[in-house]
Measured scan of single mutants.
Amino acid sequence: VRQEELAAARAALHDLMTGKRVATVQKDGRRVEFTATSVSDLKKYIAELEVQTGM
């Protein structure tokens, strides 16, 4: 499950970095929206997932 969450989070980051205004991911069973202003929060979430998956 964590691998899927990590892939979704990375895709969301890619979307935001390429101009999409809002990206949505499932985080702990709930839907979370990230915007360009919350990229740093999304990067932290990705880092947490990488630690949890041993990457």
Rank of each mutant, 00 (worst) to 15 (best):
H14G: 05
K27E: 03
E33S: 09
A36Q: 09
V39L: 15
L42T: 00
L42D: 00
M17Y: 08
R10D: 02
Y45P: 00
K20A: 13
L6S: 01
V25Y: 01
E4M: 05
L13G: 00
R31W: 15
R2H: 13
G19E: 02
E48L: 11
Q52D: 11
Q3T: 12
G19C: 05
R30C: 11
T18V: 09
E33V: 13
R31Y: 14
R30Y: 11
L42Y: 00
E4F: 11
L49I: 05
V25L: 06
A11R: 14
V32T: 04
L16Y: 01
K43P: 01
Q52F: 12
R2T: 11
S40W: 09
T18N: 10
L16G: 00
V39A: 06
Q26H: 07
L49C: 02
K20T: 11
E5V: 10
S40R: 10
A7R: 13
Q52C: 07
Q52V: 14
V39D: 02
L49M: 08
V51Y: 13
T24R: 04
M55C: 10
H14N: 12
E33P: 03
S38T: 14
K20M: 06
V1Y: 13
K43R: 14
A12T: 02
L13H: 03
R30H: 14
A23Y: 03
L42S: 00
E4P: 05
A7H: 08
K44F: 08
H14Y: 14
A47D: 09
K20D: 04
L49R: 02
F34W: 05
L13N: 00
E48S: 05
V51N: 11
A47S: 11
K43C: 09
V32G: 01
A12F: 02
G19V: 02
L16V: 03
V22C: 13
Q3K: 14
D41M: 10
M55A: 10
A8M: 14
A9F: 10
A36M: 11
D28N: 08
I46L: 04
A8Y: 09
G54A: 10
E33K: 09
R2Q: 14
K27N: 04
Y45C: 04
T53Y: 06
R2F: 11
K27D: 03
A12V: 03
L16F: 02
S40D: 14
I46G: 00
A7E: 14
V1N: 10
A9M: 09
A8N: 11
L49P: 00
V22P: 03
L13Y: 10
V51D: 14
Y45K: 02
S38W: 02
A23C: 07
V32L: 11
Q3W: 15
L13R: 00
T35I: 04
Q52W: 09
V39F: 07
I46S: 00
Q3E: 13
A8T: 07
E4D: 07
K44D: 13
I46W: 02
V51G: 08
D28V: 02
G54C: 09
